[in-house]
Structure formats: C-alpha cells, structure tokens
Amino acid sequence: MREFGYQRVFDVPGAVALGADPEARYLGGGTNLVDLMKASVERPALLIDVRELPLDRIESTDDGGLHIGATVTNSDLAAHPEVRRRYPALAQAVLAGASGQLRNMATVGGNLLQRTRCAYFTDPARPCNKRNPGSGCAAVKGEHRNHAILGATEHCVAVHPSDMSVALAAFDARVTYETATGPGELPLTEFYLPVGDTPHLETALPPGALITGITLPPAPVAATSRYRKVRERASYAFAIGSVAAALDVQEGAVREVRLAFGAVASRPWRARAAERALTGAPATAEAFAAAADAELAAAKALPHNGYKVTLIRNLVVAVLTELTEEAAR
C-alpha cells in the first residue's frame, strides 16, 4: 500500500478545499476504499476523513420527501422509521447488502461510489480497462458469470454492486454534492455514466466533488414497494440479480409502477420500457412478464450469464405479483 496523509474534516468547505487535490480521496467507512488500497487498485496520497461532517441526518423535506445526509450509515438508513414507512424497498435493499458490521461502517456517499466486484478489476496482474484504460477487458473472454446483460460494451462488462442504489433509482433520487466552486445536483439515473469506451469514468460528479446527500422526492407509490435480491448463498453475498419495484393497482389495473434492476449493468437499471408497457395494463402475471420482456429485449448475454435474463424476468413477475397481493389486503 502506498503511504498517505490523513486529515479529519469538520465542515464541508474544509473538506472540498482539501478534495481539490487530485491525489486525495474522501474516506467514509473505508469498507471499499481501504480494501482497494490494500490491493493497490486505489493509491491516494491523502485521505480526507468525512465521518465528522455534519451530514449525518435524515430529514423530511418541505414537499414531503426525505433528505439523507452523505455520512448517514447504511444501518441508520435502514433503521429509520420514515425510510421504512415511505420507501420500504430502500430499507430492504440496504438490509440485503453486506453484513451488520459493514452496514454500521458504510456511509451513503461511499455506498454510491463503491467500485465493481469484477475479480479482474481487483487483480493488478490482469488487463482491465476500468483500472488501466486501454489494457483490454479480461472478463469478456474470461470469468463473467456475474457480469452485465444490459448497457455493456466490449470495453467493459462489469456490473455495479450496490443494492441501495437500485432502490434509489426506482424512486427518482437526486444526489447532492459540493465542490470548491459551489453546490450541484444530479438525478441518480444520470449519476452513473454510460460505459462507452471509457469504463474508467464512472460518474458525472465533477472532480473533487464531495457528495453531501441524497434527496428522495415524495412518491406515494413507494409505500407499496419491495426489493428482492438473488445471490449464490442465502446472505452476505453480492447480488446476481435484483429488482426494486413499487406498484399502485386500482381496480385491477396498474395505475403507477416503478421498476429498477440490480447486478445487470454498470449502473442501477431503471426499467422505463417495462414501466411504460405496464402503465394502464391489467395487473396480471402475463402483463408483468410481457413488461419484463419489453425491457429485456435489449439484453445481450455473454456465454456464461444468459441465466440473468430469465432470472430478472422471473423476479419481476414474482415481486409485482406479491405487491399486487399486498395492495389487495
């Protein structure tokens, strides 16, 4: 591991002033950054510890939404009564990730910016365009059982590992940030950049930006929502496929639906084609499957991950069926 300086910051202007150094990184819980530093994938010269910043609150907004500070831990997010009441799928998504220990350490800002778990990315001996631009992608012809079926290019087929961000994508969350020249905001669905031929450029955040929080707009439909994750063992593993869904059924027809998929792309995948296909359609298993097919028509499977297309289709039908039954109770 490269040697590094360490600074604790107590206010946002102090943080972004230090963050202007291109060799600096913000340190949240460290559960991803420290791991990657041990592997020499990340080699910062300075860590700016953000955990003492006054960004650890969850507050209702005037319009009835929620603002979640960037240093709120994953545990506190999932335990918060307003999150559980208004956006239950968000609490479920966070609880489905990592372990009790890691959720106590991990912060909201760090969770959004965690890097892919593609094994070649963390192995500096292998080619990887994301870690070392232009070196190639070892996964395309290698081990890619858990890689992308949507939005990937031959330059990178990695998936984003966050469960939390899948629920956030379904609920139209916005990421707020601060830079040395002022604040800014990005919709979560535009926060992660398309892969293109630049997989090393992952987000639309300006250089040195400090994430200050996430704003969730009011979404009555989110009160009937669910996150379901499939993994290779029952717990403490990353998703091989997941779905966040919210559903409003009136007289047997879909009035409003939100759908996002996890572990299928380099970013949480908001399934807008499926949402369009379902809105106004009867709330039946056939219609749910047809909507999933509408979204998955664009899927391009690799030799070893074709199962994900079926997996996501089945998950969509199962979760929407459960939500229809829940709404009828």
Binding site: Y6, R8, L27, G29, G30, T31, V34, D35, K38, L47, D49, R51, S75, S99, G100, Q101, L102, N104, M105
Partner: peptide, 26 residues
C-alpha cells in the same frame, strides 16, 4: 483481512464493526 469473514469484529462506540477495514488513525 478483507471484510469477508467477521473474525476481526470489535465494537466501535458500541456498534459492531470489522477492524480489518478500519484504519487505526480513523
């Protein structure tokens, strides 16, 4: 030493955490 097993669990301010991904200085 990678956060994957829990053998290094300690309590930080009363909450459980893995000490292998926690920098001492922090």
């Amino acid at each position: 030493d990678q956060g994957q097993c829990g053998a290094c669990t300690v309590l930080l301010d009363g909450r459980r955490a893995v000490s292998c991904l926690q920098l001492a200085v922090a």
